[in-house]
Design a binder for these strands. Sequence first.
DNA 1: AATTCATATGAACATTTATTCATATGTTTA
DNA 2: TAAACATATGAATAAATGTTCATATGAATT
Lengths: 126, 126
Amino acid sequence: MTEQERIEQEVRECVCEFMHVHEEIVDKVEKVMPDEQQLLELSEFFKVFGDSTRIKILYVLSQSEMCVCDIATLLQMGQSAISHQLRVLKQMRLVKFRRDGKTVFYSLSDDHIQTILAQGMEHISE
Amino acid sequence: MTEQERIEQEVRECVCEFMHVHEEIVDKVEKVMPDEQQLLELSEFFKVFGDSTRIKILYVLSQSEMCVCDIATLLQMGQSAISHQLRVLKQMRLVKFRRDGKTVFYSLSDDHIQTILAQGMEHISE
DNA sequence: AATTCATATGAACATTTATTCATATGTTTA
DNA sequence: TAAACATATGAATAAATGTTCATATGAATT
């Protein structure tokens, strides 16, 4: 690519990104955009649902509270893997837990989680 | 780690994973588990929400239909990056589009998407 | 028909992420 | 208090993912 061509491309990109936009729409939406930080947090929240192991954990917990061993058995996975994922779920407050002797029982932390799971199920079964 | 110790660990893991589980719970939940494939699809669906660029795209589209250039301008990102992400959103049927001459307008594909976004917002603002 | 423009896409690179292995922590029981 | 047990965690490795760069496609305009 020659320098000349590079400049031409930059001009083209500039045109695309700063001149031929629909200004009314962009201006209107810009005003109601939540701040960067909030949208980042939102994506981090959903990221937690975006792994099949964690989805399975959430699903089984939607049926009953359960200890780490139970979950590992149900999913046929190692205890360590489950434990690591439970930590992620805990950090995002998707699950809560109570200790009973040596055992720790996990459960879903609130109703949003169920609602989100249900909406997702509906979407993929359409 | 000696062979002896390895065996001991395997036994320990075996105990954890196959003997001290709460059988009633495990049996009950095993019966209502959706099949592997469905849960995998569910996680793939949510994975799409789990990236800040895509969340921003979904958010701006929840306000108005919009062309690729508009989105790139709003998010201050390159056209290519947006286009790649729109493909992901399209594949999972989170967005639909209509062509008008050279321009392609994107919009959210159905109400589940709005509901899920709203539930997520509620969760993180608690 | 040739050019311009909006969008799409393939390849490459850098970053993130999930699992495993080994071990640590904290609770109970002998 | 020592051993057994359920769970947690740090480090390492392997796999997945997002962005950029260069270019391709397809529609409109001259």
